[in-house]
Amino acid sequence: MTKRSVLAILVLGCLIGGALTGLLFYHLGGPATPAAPGPTQPPRLAEATAAAPPTPDEATGIRIYEQLSPSVVNITTIEVSYDFFFEPYRESGTGSGSILDTDGHILTNHHVIEKADQILVSLTDKLKYPAEVVGFDEIDDLAVIRIKAPASQLKPLPMGTSADLKVGQHVFAIGNPFGLTRTMSHGIISSLGRSIKSRAGYIIDNVIQTDAAINPGNSGGPLIDAAGRLIGVNTSIFTTSGGSIGIGFAVPADTVRRVVADLIQYGKVRRPWVGVYGQDIDPQLAGYLKLPEEIGVLVAYVEPGSSASQAGIQGGTQRVRLGFSRLIIGGDFIVAVDDRAVTGQADFTSYMLNKNLGETVTVTLYRDGRKIRLPVKLIGKERGYQM
């Protein structure tokens, strides 16, 4: 057999083998031209049951928000400042407020509008109304402003009382944190009777502490109880981050009532003229001066004609040097008022200023080593208040 014959036989065998292999692969279901895709079925998701009705707590929150959020306003302040080259530029801030009546009076914090050159108030109609300042009280950090808006847009927030509050009560804060309008948070009253220092440096007493989230922009907004009453005005927070960590403070409604009434009627709060200026005493200073108690106020000066002067409280008589400081000694050493310990000048002054004109308080003091209790009738001064 020639080489040509052998080669032909080999080629023929390969062709026959390839044909048989292809036929076998076809019958065994090898890959074929894909069929045109048909219509796809949507994935079958688990069906949820019908929504459960709100719990009693949820129903209360829903009711509070639906009924009272229209009574909370967004306050925008504009302040004109000047740069290094005396070029003016605008700075803006935000806060919250509560509608007091259909005459357009709005309650907020003093620090919200303190430096404002222009104040704008937004209602539920999304319009911005210019506001004017009716009056303010830097001691309790409260202010009343007024807008001219249709009465139909002004829904007053009911004013409650703080006298019957209990720790553990549910409360709601509505405001504009970080400019997010009419945001509501929920919490409880964490404590009552707190004392905090206002931005003006005065002590605000009987403050409500809450864990409801209060953030920048909530200032001036209401703290509301489950009955839908304003029980406080959110004014400050304790924070290590700049935002809420669950420790917020509100000026109590009973303080708000008294302040608001004076601001609307007189444009200022009529306060007693105390007339005492003195030195805070701590244990170290008390030991150096050989005082009978470790904490109080050593009176340095008493304003003639003031409540303190008319009650017979006496100021200092001589100056002494203590390190780099000079002290005026020889005056009365005040340790209590109405049987409430006095921790310093700011504490004493704030307590007196939050009393009403005509009231009489009892001041406990030491004079020449003798403990004396003096009745002090609180009188006013025509030109504002003095310490």
Rank of each mutant, 00 (worst) to 15 (best):
M352I: 15
I214S: 08
T21P: 02
Y202T: 01
G243P: 06
R182S: 13
T161A: 10
L107F: 14
V133D: 02
L127C: 01
A36T: 14
I204H: 04
D262G: 06
D103S: 14
D262M: 01
I145E: 10
V72W: 04
S69F: 05
I196P: 06
Y82R: 13
I214H: 02
D164W: 01
A213N: 06
P42R: 04
A46I: 13
H111I: 09
S98I: 10
V299I: 14
P283I: 00
V260W: 04
P216D: 05
V251E: 11
R229N: 14
G384N: 03
V361C: 05
I208K: 02
A36F: 12
A308N: 12
S152T: 14
V335T: 15
Q169V: 00
L285W: 02
P31V: 01
Y202H: 15
I9V: 15
S325K: 15
H170L: 04
T2V: 05
I247M: 09
C14W: 08
I119H: 02
I329S: 09
L127P: 00
A253W: 01
E79H: 06
D57T: 02
S195P: 07
I379L: 14
G278N: 05
L28A: 14
K155N: 13
R373L: 10
A151N: 00
V11M: 14
A151D: 10
V302C: 04
D211E: 07
G168R: 03
A226G: 00
I99R: 05
L285E: 06
A341P: 09
V6Y: 14
I224Y: 05
Y82M: 09
L285Y: 03
D83T: 08
R63Y: 00
D205T: 12
G267W: 08
P39C: 00
E382F: 03
A300D: 13
Q314C: 05
L154R: 08
T124W: 00
G187C: 01
S81D: 07
T360I: 08
G344A: 10
